[in-house]
Amino acid sequence: MQELKTLRYTEEGQVARVELLRDTINMRMVRELTAVCDHLEDESEATIVVFTGAGDDFCRGIDFRDFRPDQPVDIHGFNKWEKACVRIERLPKVTVAAMQGEVRGGGLQLALVCDVRIASPDAVFQLPEVKSGFLPGMATFRLAKYVGLGRAKRLIMQCPEFDAHKAVALGLIDEVAYDLDEGVQAAIDNFLPVHPVVVQLARRLLNESYATDFENAIGNFLAAQHRAVTQTAFLETLKRARQEDGGGD
C-alpha cells in the first residue's frame, strides 16, 4: 500500500482499523481511502473493518481549504468522494463506524455506508451542507432508507445538530457505547463468524431492495442464494447438522 498521511491503517487478526488522522476530508484522504479499499480487496485477510477518528472528533466534513473561491469548483472531486464511499459500501468485509465527538457532513456520509454505526455519548451529528449552499453527497440517496423520508428531509434541509441518543432514536446509528472500544468489540463479536461472500450478497440485496421491483428482486435473490449455498460456509453448516443428527435421515 502507498504511504498514508491522512489515515492510519492497522490489522490485527480478522480486524482492520482505519483511523482518520485528519478531522476533515481532503482529496488526499479520498485517494487514501481508495488505496485502503484496494488493499482490503486484494490483499487483506481481515473480515471486519473499523472506521474511527484518531482525535477528539470522528470527522467534521469536507475541508473547504481544498477549494479556491476564485476558481470553478471541480465536480469531479465530489465524484471521487462518492466512488470511495461506494467502494467502502461494497467491500467484501463487515464495516463498522465507531464515532466520537463531531460527526458532520462527509463524516456522517461515511458512517451511512458502513454496516453498523456505534457512537460514544459525546458524539454530535449534523448534515450542515444545505445551509452552506451545497448537498450532503449521496446521503441524499441513503439517509431516507435509515430514517424515513420525512425525517431525512428535516435532517438534510434544516441541518439540525443532534446527539447520540437522538441518533439512535432516529435509526441513524445502532448504538450508544459508553466505552467505544468495548462497544466496537461487542459489535465485532456479534458479526462473527463472517462469511465474506455471503455478507456481501446479503448487503447488496438489502441495498438494492429499495430500488428493485419484486419480479427483479426474486430473480436477484435466487442468483445470490445459489452463490451463497455453493460456498463452503453453507456446506459446513450442512455437515454439522448431519453430525448433530447422528447422520441419520
Binding site: 456481501q200 450478497l201 430473480g219 436477484n220 435466487l222
Partner: peptide, 13 residues
C-alpha cells in the same frame, strides 16, 4: 436470459 444475467451479476459481482 434474465436468470442467466442475474446469475452472472451476483457471481461475477
Amino acid at each position: 436470459g434474465k436468470k442467466v444475467i442475474d446469475a452472472i451479476k451476483y457471481t461475477v459481482g
